[in-house]
Write a protein that binds this DNA or RNA. Structure first.
Lengths: 135, 135
DNA sequence: TAAAACTATAAAGCTACTATAAGGTCAATA
DNA sequence: TATTGACCTTATAGTAGCTTTATAGTTTTA
């Protein structure tokens, strides 16, 4: 299987596959005589794992960490769970921050309507004067 | 006022001020004979405006856009409000996406406990097998 | 046979800074 | 006077996770 086929199979771009290889997330595949990469099913699984982790918002470093655990199958999986717990609390704090931001933006938006000149715009005034009561 | 004082006043690093100047967000200040930048109160206000916009999550491009509106004070401020509305819906969709992600992560986490070997880890299995029922 | 489609590498671009390097300026001190 | 320390200057590289571009070689198709 060549890189284009693998890319289509998993739904990524070929450059992304080369990038993951360069980053040490995908093992370097064998090469044909012409230098073309040849992939196996294992590579497909590895790539799919990476993509699912990315969809879950894990960083490449965290993915690397997970892979290192997989190389040690008889260790307890405490660290895996801890990694996920950390990530969950990270996501939760992002949500909290964005919700606070939304409130702020909505209240800023409420200070204006479309029938004004820029000079009298409540939004711009609100930003300029720092009426940004954050809590 | 020199760059260090301005930086301290607004609470940014001096490099950030130079960066904003280079990006066209802050007007180039006058220079002393020795080449040192000299800032006025206007610059302070401009910099504070930029920082407040950044706290609101606006990109430098959006800030640039807002500044261009400020240069035309007698235009209607429709575009300003539209920019904010767009940003609010952007923030809201981020929140929605993160909430869905959180659910996914929590359910994944629930599929394991700390008393297993990596080989039998419910989290790793969940990712590997793609049990990632997204809705 | 020639063009289209695929592969390769290397390097730059994206965002919004932050950090580092190498040096010039200025006031106070030894 | 020499030097130390704090400040300023520019230019360049690094961060994350790719994407884009440039340039070139290979294979497949028309």
């Amino acid at each position: 299987m060549r890189i284009g086929q693998l890319a289509q199979l998993v739904g990524v771009e070929t450059q992304t596959i080369r990038f993951y290889e360069q980053q040490g997330l995908l093992p370097p595949p064998d090469r044909q005589d012409n230098g073309y990469r040849v992939y196996t099913e294992k590579h497909g699984e590895g790539l799919a794992f990476i993509r699912r982790c990315r969809i879950l918002g894990l960083s490449l470093a965290e993915i690397h960490e997970l892979q290192s655990y997989q190389d040690d199958p008889h260790q307890p999986c405490t660290a895996v769970n801890a990694l996920l717990d950390d990530h969950i609390s990270h996501v939760r704090s992002q949500i909290t921050a964005l919700q606070a931001l939304e409130k702020q933006l909505v209240s800023l938006r409420a200070s204006c309507n479309d029938n004004r000149e820029v000079e009298a715009c409540g939004v711009l005034a609100g930003i300029s004067e720092g009426n940004m009561h954050q809590q």
